[in-house]
Every structure is written in C-alpha cells, then in structure tokens.
Design a protein around this nucleic acid. Structure first.
Lengths: 200, 200
DNA sequence: GGACTACTAGACTACCCAGTCTACTTGCTG
DNA sequence: CAGCAAGTAGACTGGGTAGTCTAGTAGTCC
C-alpha cells in the first residue's frame, strides 16, 4: 500500500521477533492476533510459518536461551576473570529481556515441562558447567582450595544473582545493576574459596 | 441433600483453601467454576464472599506469604543457629507449596504489581531482615567479621536457595532437599564471614 | 409461622481466543 | 501471459470465561 520496498524474505524473522517481544511483555496468553499485528502481518501468515501457537512459543523460547547464556574468558588472574564473568552474567540475566524470559519460562514450566527443562539445561546449567570447569582448573593450579567445583560455581552464581533476580521478577525493580556489587561478591567468593585457610 | 451436618460457618475458609490449591496447581487462569467445584460450593457462593476473581486471588496471595516466611532462633552457637535456619528455610521455600506460590507470584507480578511487591516485602525481604539483624549481633559480638549485615544475609540466603529454587521452578525437580547441602552452605558462609582472616 | 440468611442450580450476557477456510491481491519467473 | 508462491482481509466454528440474575431450598431466630 504505502510502503513499497518490503523485504519479503524475512517475514518469518519479523514474526519471531514480534512474538518474542509480545510473549515477554504479555506472557503466554498474548493472542495470536496481537502477535500478528505487532509483526504487521495477517493472522493467517502466522499459521503459514508455524503450525500452532505452542510451536511458535517453543521456537521463541529456544531462541531466548542465549539471553541467559554467558561464556567466560579465562585470561588474566582469577579475580579479573570472575569480575568480568560476574559483570557480564549480571547484565544479561538482570536485563529486562533476561528477566522477562525467565518469568515466562518459569510461569509456563508446568504447561511445557520438556521445553522448560531444555531451557534450564542449555541455559543456566550450561553456564554453571563452564564456570565449574574454570574453577576446577583454578583448584588444580592451587589458586583455589580443593573443593567440589560444581558446588563452588553454584555458590558464586547464586551470590551474583539470587536476590536481585528475585527482586526484578517479583518487585519489578529495574535499577538492579550496581557495578560495585559484582566486586563485593567476587571478594566474598574468594574469601570462601581461595587457598590459605583450611585445607584438610 | 445427602450430608446433613454441614459446618456452615467456614464456607469462606473452605473456599480460600480450595482457591489456594487451585491457583497453585493451575495458575491464575484457573476458572472460578473449578475453584467452586473444588470447594464443593456453587459459583454464586464464591461471589457472595469475594467481589471478583482478582480479590480472591489477592487474598490467597496474602495468606500464602507465610509459606515463605521463616523466623530464626538465636540460641546456641552460630553454626547451630545458621544450620537450623538454613534447614527450615530450605524446607519451606523448596516445598511444592512454596515453589508453586513463588511461581504464581512471579508469573502474575506484571498484572498485580502492588500485590507482588507486598509479597516480596513481607516474605523474602522480611526473612532477610531478620537474618541480617542476627548477623549484625554476631558481628558486634566479634563472632563474624565486620561487614554489611544485609549483604552477608543476602549471600547466605542466596547460597541456600538460588540454584535449587531455580531448578524446582523451571525443571520441576522435586527431590531438592539434600540435608547435607545446608551444612555445606553454612561452612562456606562461615569461611567467608567468620573473623580471623582479614579485617581492615 | 414468618422473616432472614446462606447456599444452590442453572440460565444468560458479553466477551475473547485458537485455528480453519475462502476469495482476493501481488510479485516473481519462465 | 500463465502459473506459482506468499501474503491479506475477514468470516466462521467451537470452545471457554467472568460476572449477573432468577427462582428455589434449607436452616435459624424470634
């Protein structure tokens, strides 16, 4: 009609993005019509690309896994590495998108148990495994005290996120990203896990 | 009809309990009819006691706050106290009821922001405050190193719950309550916060 | 008995939604 | 030009829901 130069190849992509935003903003109960409108597309077009609402939702969640995935870069000393990781992780998970993704996956977990499990494994669990591998190396190198690396990684990510994530999810707080906190947590973690105190 | 001796005074109570279970099991979208059926009551009776579904939901959430509230008992040495607290807290929050309550409050927070805020403040935040008060006393008594009590309390509850709660909410895992974990966390916390290492 | 209260069964309104189907328009390609 | 692929608008089905209303039942108090 008015706009002539459509980019027709990626209707599907536009749809996925619109669905992603719509689900994040309004939850699973957002209607197909609203998603279609947001993508500026007819309802039937949605069904041309995805067999059902559930299938669209599943694809959106798969794409969203990356919104809570963080790699860590093992250069530098341990404090620097943990600081960089902690900072990146907090920024991703505590962003409005990260929080909204978590909220919807948690909310719909009873309805889509397999999807939620997959999210959990490929998201938070994978990040923890990566961190644990790094920590295990640091333990082997004598930088950290010998302990279970998985447990140590769990403690670190818990300290980084737990309270602020809960606040973001329930209390809808938005200014969760005080950078000083990451350093506080890293120091706390190192007090608990650096060598030098007790090693049986 | 068949049963003659009804206990008519607590229709409201039966309704509240039924609604509580129903919301926990099926989420906010459970229909009024299903709640009424679960309470063995006519739909109109629901509306005789509560002006709307939202009002009923609000009352259910208010009642559910206690399902994540824990007091701590300051007798005994610090390790014993923290162990008892940690155990009780994990048992409450990681129980199926605790997890289901959290899931629904998080899921519906955008729709009921004030209610969710209230839940957060009277639930998790209150527990943290109590813990922080205890920790502050321990710091003043020289048992723990001087640090921000709120921060220390946050770290402790985070380590106790974070990962298992997330697993329970997303992965629908049920056997989250390994008692040894509480002790592991308490020891980790004490390594990070007991006196004796560095006190500037 | 009469009035009152609490509850019941079920009809009814006024919505909203997933998913299907049909008839139509474009634009590209051979 | 013919045919195909992709999208559009809108009607339609079948189902579900919150909340209202009505007529009736049962127990309780005076």
């Amino acid at each position: 009609m008015t706009a002539v130069l459509e980019v027709p190849q990626d209707t599907r992509q536009r749809l996925l993005e619109a669905a992603c935003e719509a689900f994040r903003e309004e939850g699973y109960q957002v209607s197909i019509d609203r998603i279609a409108a947001r993508a500026q597309v007819a309802r039937q077009t949605v069904y041309n690309h995805f067999p059902s609402k559930d299938a669209l939702f599943a694809e959106v969640v798969q794409h969203a896994i990356q919104s809570v995935l963080v790699t860590l870069d093992g250069d530098g000393d341990i404090r620097t590495t943990l600081l960089a990781f902690g900072h990146a992780y907090r920024e991703k998970v505590l962003s409005p998108e990260g929080l909204a993704t978590l909220r919807i996956v948690m909310a719909e977990a009873p309805r889509f148990p397999e999807l939620a499990k997959q999210f959990f494994r490929q998201g938070p669990l994978t990040t923890r495994k990566r961190l644990a591998a790094y920590i295990e190396r640091a333990m082997a190198a004598g930088i950290l005290r010998k302990d279970a690396p998985d447990f140590a990684a769990e403690m670190f990510t818990a300290m980084l996120l737990d309270f602020d994530r809960q606040r973001g999810l329930i209390d809808l707080q938005t200014d969760l990203l005080k950078p000083a906190k990451t350093a506080q947590v890293v120091d706390c973690f190192l007090r608990a896990f650096a060598v030098g105190k007790d090693m049986p």
